[in-house]
Design a protein around this nucleic acid. Structure first.
Length: 380
DNA sequence: GTTCTAGAAC
DNA sequence: GTTCTAGAAC
């Protein structure tokens, strides 16, 4: 037991957790290890939206295991990576995941710093805990936020990094979707964490696209609004993803403000497809979004309809691109233009278990190998 | 999202 | 026996 408490103390001494506003609307908020911190419609967070409860969420960090438990107390929904948190239930929030405090608004993230000796973190003195015994208020938790580094702005002109479009069968075997961007921890602490299997330093797999967006091996084109990447596991001869540079975790968080962006994404996708079809008129493309995407950071698929790829392996792969689970980009745009929001499609996940059938002739298929043979020859 | 693998299906 | 899949783990 003593060892257990010593380990907990070590975690508390060396790793600190902070809640950061993605829009920099307020200073970062320390989340002391294992101490529930309540956030909501308070002056400290700058949230005035009445749909947000004053006690919307209870956050309890685990600095040792590097995650935060998020319990929803408020009546309206909160989301982690676009997925609703049920009332009075706790969901796990990991570094890099998006936490929307209410109704897809007020994006925040958590991060963990390394040790106290780390020069990047030494200014971030963790205040005393907001317990009744300390008598401190929530505002006591706020501290001065270091100035953010300005990001480089891309050139205005669309930049084609790899204009020669080839079928996507020869990708690097490097793990592109594994998190590999710089950690805020110092190298000394990285080594320390690396040696501790129970304190993983990598981000959740669902954050892999964000790293992929910065990988020159994958990026084929970009402009000031979007990035086009090759899908690392293409499900057809041609399969790209187009992602906005602004942080938008899923289609569910879209508003009418994003209509022009969505039209731009579609236009870029259509131009890519046209480049292929000019040389191969028989190649067909679709442009769309998964009803419920697994990977964070909204992305539109540009995918040829041959489905000839060694990465296409499962019923889920097939149904995600050939049933209504694949939502045409034009449908998403229309929904925003007519209703101001995107339909909630969470119930559509059942489509992923539908029996296999050919997307052209609709003939049922026994299994994946049979389906693959069939679609190679089916002309409808 | 992928990988791995036990057990079902053949 | 081999092939295939679904679900757990990551």
């Amino acid at each position: 037991m003593r060892i257990f408490y010593r380990l907990l103390k070590m975690a508390d001494d060396t790793v600190k957790c902070y809640l950061e506003c993605c829009k920099s609307s307020h200073p970062k908020l320390p989340l002391p290890h294992n101490v529930p911190v309540i956030i909501g419609r308070t002056p400290e967070l700058g949230i005035t939206d009445k749909l947000c409860s004053r006690s919307q969420l209870e956050l309890t960090s685990n600095c040792y295991k590097r995650y935060v438990l998020v319990k929803r107390l408020g009546a309206n929904t909160s989301q982690i990576n676009g997925i609703d948190i049920e009332k009075n239930k706790s969901s796990r929030l990991e570094e890099g995941q998006d936490l929307h405090v209410v109704n897809g608004k007020f994006p925040h993230r958590v991060y963990f710093t390394g040790c106290q000796n780390d020069t990047k973190t030494e200014k971030a003195v963790v205040p005393k805990l907001p317990t009744k015994s300390t008598g401190l208020t929530k505002s006591d938790l706020f501290i001065k936020q270091p100035e953010r580094k300005k990001l480089k702005v891309s050139e205005n002109k669309s930049k084609v990094l790899n204009s020669k479009i080839k079928p996507q069968e020869k990708f690097s075997s490097e793990s592109v979707y594994a998190f590999d961007s710089p950690s805020p921890m110092s190298s000394r602490c990285e080594k320390k964490a690396e040696s501790n299997k129970r304190a993983p330093t990598h981000k959740h797999w669902s954050q892999g696209l964000k790293a992929a967006m910065e990988d020159p091996e994958l990026v084929v084109q970009e402009d000031e609004q979007i990035v086009v990447i090759k899908d690392k596991y293409p499900k057809a001869k041609y399969h790209w993803l187009i992602l906005p540079k602004d942080s938008i975790s899923s289609t569910k968080n879209l508003s009418t403000d994003n209509i022009e962006l969505l039209k731009h994404i579609l236009k870029v996708g259509q131009e890519l497809a046209t480049e292929v079809m000019d040389k191969q008129p028989d190649v067909e493309f679709r442009f769309g979004y998964h009803a419920v995407a697994s990977m964070s950071q909204m992305h539109m698929h540009v995918i040829s309809q041959d489905f000839q790829s060694s990465s296409f392996k499962t019923k889920k792969h097939w149904n995600s691109f050939t049933t209504d689970y694949f939502v045409d980009a034009t449908d998403i745009i229309n929904e925003l233009e007519t209703g101001g929001k995107v339909k909630d499609r969470r119930t559509m996940t059942s489509l992923l278990n539908e029996p296999l059938k050919c997307h052209r002739c609709k003939k049922p298929q026994k299994n994946i190998p049979t389906l693959k043979k069939h679609i190679d020859s089916c002309q409808k």
